[in-house]
Design a protein around this nucleic acid. Structure first.
Length: 572
RNA sequence: CGGGGAGUAGCGCAGCUUGGUUAGCGCGCCUGCUUUGGGAGCAGGAGGCCGCGGGUUCAAAUCCCGCCUCCCCGACCA
């Protein structure tokens, strides 16, 4: 039993300024968390108990999937990250510093390098594979923009797991198993998530899924098909874009230069020439962080997905070109053409453009456009790839139904890493046939605090938090009213705890109204009230936090309480 | 990093435009009395480098310059 008087962290009537996400407000108001700095939080006793319960569920599911827990360092030698190449590849998001002897150190953002280096020293034979290891540990990422409380912090606890396999086939087996384990974890925490196919990003690798909690506060856009179940992150999602009106059977027509005064947007161009946007090509000017210039060509009726373009050119991020840069490659904004850009920039053409014939494009001259521009004949792309940003209502590539987009929070992800880390760290094993082979890795992460925040976001009402019993800080919240209530509460709490339900006892000398509102704010699943009045009525008033206000309160005799609680929230 | 906003008591805010004695209000906190089933009432009280540094001025929370911190919107992540 924990007494309210022992807790650090009072409940607040008002949310602190700046906390505008509802779940975040409640976590602060109910005394779960306090902010220390940008993206850095203290977890007060209530939140810490929730964290530990979530972690316990993770341990059970990871163990059930065949995992073993270990613990790897938070501070890594910079050398380790130089070997994998990520020391230079990752930007200021990774905190770097030096020790007293000027040796390079970094704060762990993730642990692929450490796992691979452990694998290199510990794994010699195919007989030692497969393996699944995990730990639950602090990470630090100097995120450019933390936000929404625990949804996106710089310091956070992550459960990260790593698989080691002999081959891709083995990886696939573990990957599927972890996928199932993740669904079980989120389910047990009371959070509905959907797995979506995702970009591999900084992890590298061949395939990835993200587990998304759908909510408008999310920062990711998910593309969903309600009829066939297609679900992908917008960064990689595809849509079925129709061929140009008139079909893809057209023959290439000769280039023709036409005057198009002040038609410097697709809209005005279509008006001037009397064509539809799907007959036009538009040019987007971007530059990579290492100063390579990129010219992307997409059809006028679609828009560019920068993440896809960044992947094609192998850049971590892109920025728009400056006016000077555009001029330097010989283009004229509003009348731009990929023709003649040639050596001066990387030309990436969307596959829809590549399929289309006789598009209208700029002439690289103010007030002029070209008719019948065709990829291959008129200009040579460096890459042809899908570059289209999927929009609401476009057709599903699988079944053709209208796609819908939704916002989501990424609470977990799983990656097939392949052998890149094994290669750079020298993690090899001797196969059954005597050949030396690289270990095939996978990695799997869940943000513990973010998961907590998402559950808070999902399970609340206008009076406070409404925790699922599985991860609530306490199963039972006892309001002890008056001296008689307090005198009876101790024995009562013991009888409940005897059957392993944990109890938070409000032993404060507060008026009943204060105790009730605080209990609702804190949100434990079962609320008990013991007082002179309830004892006279034969026991303790009991209700569920999830019940409507006012109703559904019953008197339960003290010796039946444990059973009553167990019947309603199950074992704990 | 770009754009927008904010730093005044533990929390939420006013005061600043138009400088001027002792910097206010609500909640919370302390003491006393009353009260005691839905955030009590009365009385008394504690608590401030007005974000930091510089400048202007007889005088700065208030005007000017610089810096720091935090929040929100864009590109990235568990």
């Amino acid at each position: 039993m924990v007494k309210m008087s022992q807790l650090l962290g009072a409940t607040l009537r008002e949310a602190p300024a700046g906390a505008d996400t509802p779940g975040y407000q409640l976590l602060v108001r109910a005394g779960y968390i306090r902010q220390l700095g940008q993206g850095i939080f203290s977890y007060l006793p209530l939140a810490w108990r929730v964290m530990r319960r979530i972690e316990q569920i993770m341990r059970e599911e990871m163990d059930a999937a065949g995992g073993v827990e270990l613990s790897m360092p938070v501070v890594h030698p910079g050398e380790l990250w130089k070997r994998s190449g990520r020391y230079d590849k990752i930007g200021p998001e990774m905190v770097r510093f030096t020790d007293r002897r000027d040796r390079s150190l970094v704060l762990a953002m993730t642990n692929e390098e450490v796992v691979a280096s452990l694998a290199a020293s510990e794994i010699q034979s195919w007989r030692q594979l497969p393996k699944l290891v995990y730990h639950i540990q602090l990470k630090f990422r100097d995120d450019p923009r933390p936000r929404a409380g625990l949804i996106r912090t710089r310091e956070f606890t992550m459960k990260d797991a790593y698989t080691l396999d002999r081959d891709e086939e083995g990886l696939n087996v573990q990957y599927e198993r972890l996928h199932e384990a993740y669904m079980a974890i989120f389910d047990r925490c009371g959070l509905e998530t959907i797995p979506v196919a995702a970009d591999v990003g900084m992890m590298g690798g061949s395939q990835a899924h993200e587990f998304m909690y759908l909510n408008p506060i999310g920062e990711d856009t998910i593309v969903l098909c309600d009829s066939c179940g297609y679900a992908q992150n917008r960064q990689v999602a595809k849509a079925a874009i129709p061929e140009v009106s008139g079909g893809g059977e057209e023959k290439d027509e000769p280039l023709e230069r036409v005057e198009t005064p002040s038609a410097n947007t697709i809209e005005k161009l279509c008006e001037t020439l009397g064509v539809t946007p799907d007959r036009t090509a538009k040019i987007v000017f971007m530059a990579t962080s290492d100063e390579r210039l990129v010219v992307a060509v997409v059809r006028g009726d679609t828009s560019l997905n920068e993440a896809k373009l960044a992947n094609v050119v192998g850049a971590p991020e892109l920025r728009p070109m400056t006016g000077e840069e555009i001029e330097k490659i010989g283009c004229v904004p509003g009348y731009a053409s990929p023709i003649g850009v040639g050596e001066r920039a990387i030309v990436v053409v969307d596959e829809v453009v590549a399929r289309s014939r006789n598009l209208v494009s700029g002439a690289n001259e103010e007030g002029w456009h070209l008719l019948n521009v065709n990829v291959g004949r008129d200009y040579q792309p460096d890459h042809v790839a899908d570059l289209v940003a999927v929009e609401d209502g476009q057709a599903c590539v699988v079944c053709g139904s209208a796609l819908r987009t939704a916002r989501g929070v990424e609470v977990g992800n799983i990656f097939k890493l392949g052998t890149s880390y094994a290669d750079s760290m020298g993690a090899k094993y001797l196969a059954e046939d005597g050949t030396e082979r690289p270990i095939v890795m996978g990695c799997y992460g869940i943000g513990v605090g973010r998961l907590l925040a998402c559950v808070a976001e999902e399970h609340r009402d206008d009076r406070g938090l409404v925790w699922p019993a599985s991860i609530a800080p306490f199963a039972v919240h006892v309001c002890a009213i008056g001296d008689e209530g307090l005198a009876a509460a101790g024995e009562l709490a013991e009888s409940i705890e005897a059957v392993s339900f944990d109890v938070l006892l409000d032993d404060r000398e507060e008026r009943p109204g204060v105790q009730f509102t605080d209990a609702e704010l804190i949100g434990c699943p079962v609320q008990l009230t013991v007082s002179k009045r309830s004892l006279a009525a034969g026991g303790v008033e009991a209700k569920l936090r999830s019940a409507a206000p006012g109703g559904d309160t019953v008197i339960v005799p003290v010796d039946e309480l444990a059973g009553w609680v167990g019947d309603r929230i199950g074992p704990r």
